[in-house]
């Protein structure tokens, strides 16, 4: 890990005035790392990138001690505010979240390890970079780092964990499985910069490779996530999340899905189905959602929606097996969400 300066920020205002660069920009091969300043909260991902020698900032602004950002606050019908510095462990243990946003607490409790969940923050989790092993390997100057090749998409590449949808340009899947659930609940992310505060639907915050392959979201220089707002679910809403990995102990998702369903009179009136580890961004499965609207939730409709979930998939050499896995876990998550 390179040597760097450390600034301990004590307020959001100070932090956003430190001339920081998004981590994505600091990682570009033509970036000037000696001048890059980045934010770090829990910082598990940032340290990982630095230890792999793919990120080498000159200065880090510590935002772990910023005041007031570490609370979960129920704001009534406006929804629930999750401070950006809330740890994953806090989310996991919160009884109200568990009741109203079950898919989220399921996603959180299956993320990383207990030790990491105690340190990692919500904001950092959303901001983490993909776990594509070409991207994280210093020997590969891939598109994401400002290079000219997606190594995972080359013939003969090792891509069993890569994207099956939206994978033409870059097939790294998004690293945050918690975002899979957040998007399903229609979460909005609050971003604070030197000029003020903006709030963006999380789904729109993420950026596809076709828009800009070098980043996964639209965070700006000097900007940081301060809050995530979860809208209050309508009555009769049920949700579930399933993460499928090769192991049940600590593992990255091969495929994960969050399902949020509203039902009235035994029929599904609203469905939000989001796939993780399927595409470079958490991906709404529109065809699966459409397959449920107006129908009762049962084995047959859930199965049809599961089949529809990966409509248009373009698997790579080694990841076609993800298609039936998504079909299975989408079906199962729908049935669990529909139990409410």
């Amino acid at each position: 890990m390179n040597a760097f300066q450390w600034t301990d920020a004590t307020s959001v205002k100070q932090a956003t005035g430190q001339n920081t660069t998004p981590v994505a920009d600091a990682m570009l091969v033509n970036a000037k790392p000696e001048s890059a300043t980045i934010f770090k909260a829990g910082g598990v991902d940032v340290l990982d990138l630095m230890k792999e020698h793919v990120l080498a900032p000159a200065r880090i602004v510590g935002i772990g001690n910023l005041p007031k950002l570490d609370a979960i606050r129920n704001a009534g019908k406006d929804g629930t505010h999750l401070g950006a510095l809330v740890t994953l462990a806090q989310l996991e243990r919160d009884g109200d979240l568990h009741k109203s946003y079950r898919a989220l607490t399921e996603a959180v409790s299956h993320a990383a390890t207990p030790q990491v969940r105690n340190a990692a923050t919500l904001g950092g989790n959303i901001m983490q970079r993909p776990h594509c092993w070409y991207f994280r390997n210093e020997n590969f100057k891939c598109l994401k780092k400002g290079g000219t090749v997606c190594f995972a998409n080359q013939p003969g590449a090792e891509n069993k964990y890569h994207a099956i949808l939206g994978n033409q340009t870059c097939s790294a899947v998004h690293g945050s499985s918690i975002s899979t659930a957040l998007v399903a609940f229609g979460a909005q992310v609050e971003l604070t910069g030197p000029q003020g505060v903006r709030r963006v639907p999380l789904e729109q915050f993420f950026v596809t490779p076709e828009k800009d392959v070098k980043r996964e979201n639209s965070i700006q220089p000097n900007e940081l996530i301060t809050d995530v707002l979860l809208p209050t679910p309508a009555a009769g809403t049920g949700s579930w999340y399933i993460k499928f990995g090769e192991r049940e102990s600590y593992d990255w998702a091969l495929a994960d899905v969050a399902v949020v369903l509203e039902q009235q009179n035994g029929r599904c009136t609203k469905a939000s189905i989001v796939l993780g580890a399927a595409a470079p961004v958490p991906l709404r499965a529109a065809a699966a959602e459409a397959a449920l609207i107006g129908k009762p939730i049962n084995e047959e409709t859930a199965r049809a929606a599961g089949q529809a979930a990966t409509t248009g998939a373009t698997p790579l050499e080694h990841n076609a097996y993800k298609v039936p896995i998504f079909a299975a876990i989408v079906k199962r998550a729908i049935l669990k969400a529909g139990e409410v």
Binding site: W6, Q14, L69, R198
Partner: peptide, 29 residues
């Protein structure tokens, strides 16, 4: 289109901000 400017959803942030001490930079040594 990406979002509208607004106030922070964090309760009590302004008071805490006002009381925050100045940042300190150390290292790399």
């Amino acid at each position: 289109a990406g979002g509208v400017l607004m106030t922070s959803g964090i309760a009590g942030l302004a008071d805490a901000e006002a009381a925050a001490p100045a940042p300190d930079t150390v290292g790399p040594g």
